[in-house]
Design a binder for these strands. Structure first.
Lengths: 161, 161
DNA sequence: CACTAATAATTATTATGCCAACAGATTTAT
DNA sequence: ATAAATCTGTTGGCATAATAATTATTAGTG
């Protein structure tokens, strides 16, 4: 396989993901929705799963724990979510939409769907399936198991020590 | 078109782009390359175009000016690049690889190619063409012209003033 | 029961992305 | 020729991301 052919897929992915995020954010702002794209992702998931702790939520949304902590902080500050102490484990919280949060999810959802569809002009359902298959394959190829992580590290013990 | 079908392409793109970046970064770190993925993108472009100013470099790499300024700052601090005053226009600099920068680009390139190929396991050249076509289409769909920006803003004049 | 492991969440640090605002240099228009 | 507009690069503010380290709590083991 010619390695040069694929030299830019990483950049291509990166710039497209940024463009999608940027477009959605501008539309949110134009509607005066006081929310970021990543915050909306969390809200949308909470609307379907309203009794998760932060670790579970982080796994579902594929955010790191520190990132999730801060997003939840912001959503709580806006009054859209709340942390409830877990009854059996005082280390953890469960995260819930407030009434205001539920209200905004319902209010904003139609526009969000419209914004999503804009990216898909001139493309087909077949294209969507291809995209999903290819991206999922790439993800799997790079989704290292713990053993792989160790292998990479041990092959190259810290050089500057 | 069923809007629900596409509800996750944004998340899919976002998480795959992050995974690619994360994987590459871990491999860089394992090799003790003192460089980030985005810094490498700039180095790679400088290696091909060694007489650009920051605006041209920003356009080629699709970074905005503040981001590029900061990346160049870091690369200069590491001694990999240098700013030269433009002879005819005192507003601008041209950016160049130093000898050390050229040395590292040559030294690191083979490993970078190997890392790139890892993501492509189980995929074909045909897949690459599909991916490129679909991502380019999405990018174009969302790449607003100035008129579109104005239209979006004027449809919804500032509500909270 | 005490000591250690592991887990949940947070904080700190560094880097990037985007927006807005700015300063200085240069071009354009009057 | 001078004022206005534009261009180039920088800085500050806020949000996100990855990693490491820290705190608090729980679980596991002898």
């Amino acid at each position: 396989m010619p390695t040069d052919l694929f030299s830019t897929y990483g950049d291509l992915l990166d710039r497209t993901a940024r463009k999608v995020k940027q477009y959605a954010q501008r539309r949110f702002n134009a509607e005066n929705y006081d929310i970021t794209v990543d915050q909306w992702l969390i809200l949308r998931n909470l609307n379907q799963n309203n009794d998760l702790n932060q670790s579970q939520l982080a796994e579902i949304t594929e955010k790191d724990h520190p990132t999730l902590t801060r997003i939840i902080d912001l959503l709580c500050k806006k009054g859209l979510t709340e942390r409830r102490i877990h009854p059996a484990d005082r280390r953890s919280f469960t995260i819930h939409l407030t009434e205001l949060g539920k209200h905004h999810v319902a209010e904003w959802s139609p526009k969000m769907a419209e914004i999503r569809m804009k990216a898909w002009e001139n493309l087909t359902e077949e294209d969507y399936k291809s995209l999903k298959r290819i991206l999922d394959t790439i993800y799997s190829n790079l989704d290292l198991k713990v053993e792989d992580e160790l292998r990479i590290k041990n092959l190259h013990p810290i050089a500057d020590s």
